[in-house]
Design a binder for these strands. Sequence first.
DNA 1: CCTAGCACTAATATTATTCAAGTGCTAAAA
DNA 2: TTTTAGCACTTGAATAATATTAGTGCTAGG
Lengths: 329, 329
Amino acid sequence: MITTRQEKILKLIIDRYIKDPVPVGSKALSKILKCSSATVRNEMQTLEEKGLLEKTHTSSGRIPSESGYRYYVDNLMQPKEMNADDMMKLNIVLKNQQLALNDVISKSLQIISDITNYTTIALGTSSHNNLLKQIEVVPLDEESFIVIIVTDKGYVEHKNLRLNEVSLDDIKKTVNLINTLIVGTPIDEVNRKLEYEIKPIIGNYVMQHERIYEAFYNVFNDFTKEDVNIVGRHKILEQPEFTTNIDRIKEIYNKIEDREFLQKIEEDDDNNIKVYIGDETGIEKDVTVIKTKFKKGKEEGTIAIVGPNRMDYDRVLSMLEYLKENIER
Amino acid sequence: MITTRQEKILKLIIDRYIKDPVPVGSKALSKILKCSSATVRNEMQTLEEKGLLEKTHTSSGRIPSESGYRYYVDNLMQPKEMNADDMMKLNIVLKNQQLALNDVISKSLQIISDITNYTTIALGTSSHNNLLKQIEVVPLDEESFIVIIVTDKGYVEHKNLRLNEVSLDDIKKTVNLINTLIVGTPIDEVNRKLEYEIKPIIGNYVMQHERIYEAFYNVFNDFTKEDVNIVGRHKILEQPEFTTNIDRIKEIYNKIEDREFLQKIEEDDDNNIKVYIGDETGIEKDVTVIKTKFKKGKEEGTIAIVGPNRMDYDRVLSMLEYLKENIER
DNA sequence: CCTAGCACTAATATTATTCAAGTGCTAAAA
DNA sequence: TTTTAGCACTTGAATAATATTAGTGCTAGG
């Protein structure tokens, strides 16, 4: 159990440390709490024993531990409503009815990254839930074509193909076949259908069917599984806790773009906003990630904000909440 | 004028410094040149007077100056043929006949970045030379559509549109009109034609023509002017000359993604490989950029490699040359 | 023109010294 | 039982003093 005064002290320390990353001493707090520094020291000591505070060295002030931040996020932080200035900036994008969801999200994340100095990540619908909606071919010249794939959730991907000595007519035949026979199939299963339903047919009446089949097979095979958009990578360089050590920055850069990490935050099926602190992120002990899923009609995705543990939690949480709400309705 | 021995010394210093970034002293060279260190010192002194060498402090060894590197690149470097190992790695991509140019380039640059530890940049055709080839619309549901634009040079861009209470039929009519009337127009001029040739027509027999017109107008307006692909951003963190100073890294990151810089290296209309050293890059005094344009059929673009002045010139140049050659034929 | 010799310089590393901020603990006061 | 004043003690940070080292420039003689 933790007393009210201890909570107060913990909150004060974290609030201060978030503003300015220097250890907090007992003297500063004694003024605010109207008791002596010795009393504060005693309380700090018990908070340290409970694992909520840490020291950087024997005679230093206290800094929050990972569990300290956890406690703060779960119990102490009051869910302040959003800063008017931030809201205004976001509204410029959010109230624009013309923008498609895609753009709303990428522009919002750009704004959030700019004003918070944290890195933001948007993960699009992972394509394994997508159904093939339509496929188009645009010929460029005698031997190059562009194949465009559209899924039911609005995901688009294109690929240039080089197929010399293949007639446009034959390609169009194949495309028509695909568009009538396997539209509606989950992207992941298209290639199986291609083999069993398209290949035998075109084998009979399309020249060079082998090569055409192979080309389309590759197109679907390369279909990007993940749509990742990372905004403000270098914001990490703005955080004092990282700038002293280049290796940590490298590590963070690598982990952030790592499929494993991205999958982890995407697959966490909780639909609410979730906060991962320090080691919970799988990135690095001083990194915190706040993420949420969103759903709007058929489209869905994940957005995440990456910063130091010493993150401006209430600001970021309120922005993310506001963003999610506005996207979803 | 510079004597043969001076050239030899300059080359030795640069070769050494590229391998290991510590100032080179006279003693080390005296062994190789079979003369006393004092002689070498005299020669170094005249090389410094000519502006080809520098000292880091009064009693330090010499390091190459920007002009030193310049002289090295222009006169001293023997255009070594490519390292077999590097060639093998590149060939895996280059010899793959299936890949479209786009993929060949992005995969090659990935390889080059990985093996050299430099950042690489690919600039696609800047769209102002592109002609509109075709436009497609794919309906997703009652109120969302995807518009896909393809240019004659194979550049593809898509955009989600939200247009409620507009019939698919009317949109298709408009698209057909665009496809018959303004295909072949330079992308930059499409919007003008849209206004003078399409707007008056659809005004007569398309419902909601105002909103449809506006939507298409925006689609073309947002058409990305530049296709930029930066690979291996964090390779900069591997270079010892930068890791001591976070601010320089930030500066380099910013400049690299800066439109002005990208335009500069793109517009330099020299068709050969070009080396920008230090201040010539406009990025930072210790940064060197090597770039080349390529042309293959209708497609063209620019590729660049960004690293420290202390760059492994002959390796990079031979790779770039090989890549360019292989792309162009 | 080359080189041996030497005085000199600046960066780097090591050590010592001081200073400030903060702690833990004890004993007394509330 | 809780709070507080007082004090010894610890650590990091800053500053200065010192030695070491890798190199230079210059001079004078080969």
